[in-house]
C-alpha cells in the first residue's frame, strides 16, 4: 500500500493521535470507561496501522520485535512485582494498602501501577502476534 498517497497521508496523520488516545484511555480509566486492556490494544492498533500502510520492515525498524516481546514479559513482571513488593512491606500479595502512608492513596498508586503492567503486556503481545502472522510467508 506504499504507493497509495491518500492512505499514506491519512495514516501519518492518524498514528500519533491514536497513540495519544491510548494514553488518554489508560490514565482516564479511573474516571470513565477504559483501562489497561483497552489502552494496550489501541496502542498496538496504532503500530499495526503504521505497519499495514508503510510495510512491516519500517514498523520493525521503528519498534523492533525484541522490544515488543520484552514488553509482553515486562508487564506481567510489573503486575506480579507490585504484589511481591506489597508482601515485602507487610501486606498480603496484591494488597496495595500498605504501599504508602495512607491506604487510599496507596490504592490509587497500586491500581495505576497494575494497569500500567496490563497496558505493557497487552501492547507487547498484540504487536508480537501481528508481527508473527504478518511476517510469515505463504507456504506455496
Amino acid at each position: 500500500m506504499r504507493d497509495q498517497i491518500i492512505l499514506r497521508i491519512a495514516a501519518k496523520i492518524l498514528v500519533g493521535p491514536i497513540l495519544l488516545f491510548a494514553l488518554y484511555v489508560q490514565f482516564h480509566g479511573d474516571y470513565g470507561p477504559g483501562g489497561g486492556f483497552q489502552a494496550g490494544v489501541i496502542f498496538a492498533a496504532g503500530i499495526i496501522l503504521y505497519a499495514l500502510v508503510f510495510g512491516l520492515d519500517r514498523a520493525r525498524a521503528a519498534i523492533p520485535t525484541s522490544i515488543v516481546t520484552w514488553c509482553g514479559t515486562l508487564g506481567v513482571l510489573i503486575f506480579a512485582g507490585v504484589g511481591v513488593v506489597a508482601m515485602f512491606m507487610g501486606g498480603n500479595f496484591l494488597d496495595y494498602g500498605v504501599l504508602l502512608y495512607d491506604a487510599e492513596h496507596a490504592q490509587h498508586i497500586g491500581i495505576l501501577l497494575v494497569e500500567a503492567g496490563v497496558l505493557v503486556t497487552v501492547f507487547g503481545v498484540m504487536v508480537t502476534l501481528f508481527y508473527s502472522f504478518a511476517g510469515r510467508r505463504r507456504s506455496r
Partner: peptide, 28 residues
C-alpha cells in the same frame, strides 16, 4: 475503601487483582 468513580476499574485492578493477574499471564 477505594474512591475511584469507575467501579469496573476498581474491581478489575484492586478487589479482583488475582483474576486480572491470571488473565494477563494467560495473554502472555
Amino acid at each position: 475503601e477505594v474512591h475511584i468513580p469507575n467501579i469496573v476499574t476498581t474491581v478489575l485492578a484492586s478487589y479482583r487483582g488475582y483474576d486480572t493477574l491470571g488473565e494477563t499471564t494467560v495473554v502472555f
